[in-house]
């Protein structure tokens, strides 16, 4: 009961904040709402007993990435953005994609939980209080290849950013 109340409250907050992110005209306000939504996710992770994920979520997204977001937003004149047209030529494509995603979501909700394969995790994992170790082991054994691919991808992105930003080296 309490569990459900917490879940729905958090879910409502996340959805409302996510909506505000795209509805707010001022980019800094958008960023603020995004921070709230991300904090909501962190709370959800805690409820799922994935404390490590919650901590990383706050550290990386709220404390790191959002700071950089704000850094960039502050460099851009917000007033000019507020006066820009809200609808661009992309709106038709956007509607199509949104409808597609909505259809997908509705299908999933109608079909319910039966389409997901749920596996009860072994008790050893749950009782082990060190959820950091579990994540670490998974990343460095079962999912080593995706992990490495993600690292390489990030490295590529980093080099690309440096090249773009530093035109004159």
């Amino acid at each position: 009961m309490i569990d459900q109340i917490i879940f729905y409250t958090l879910a409502f907050i996340i959805v409302a904040m996510s909506l505000m992110v795209i509805l707010a005209r001022n980019a800094v306000r958008s960023a603020l709402y995004l921070i709230s939504a991300l904090l909501g996710f962190a709370a959800l992770y805690i409820r799922l007993q994935a404390e490590l994920l919650a901590g990383v979520q706050i550290l990386v997204y709220v404390g790191g990435i959002m700071v950089l977001f704000l850094f960039v937003i502050m460099l851009v004149s917000v007033r000019t953005m507020e006066h820009q047209a809200r609808q661009t030529r992309q709106w038709k494509a956007a509607v199509v994609i949104a409808l597609g995603v909505a259809a997908e979501l509705i299908y999933l909700i109608v079909r319910g939980g039966s389409i997901f394969v749920t596996k009860q995790p072994p008790d050893a994992l749950l009782t082990k209080s060190q959820n950091t170790q579990v994540v670490g082991e998974a990343l460095y054994s079962t999912y080593l290849l995706p992990f490495e691919i993600a690292s390489v991808l990030l490295l590529v992105a980093m080099i690309g950013a440096v090249v773009l930003a530093k035109k004159k080296i």
């Binding site: 921070i35 404390e51 490590l52 919650a54 901590g55 990383v56 706050i58 550290l59 709220v62 404390g63 790191g64 959002m66 700071v67 704000l70 209080s129 060190q130 959820n131 950091t132």
Partner: peptide, 16 residues
């Protein structure tokens, strides 16, 4: 169990 991570994460929010 993630107290240290929690402390570092939360104090990083203050800069916002």
């Amino acid at each position: 169990n993630i107290a240290l991570l929690f402390a570092v994460a939360v104090s990083s929010v203050g800069v916002l």
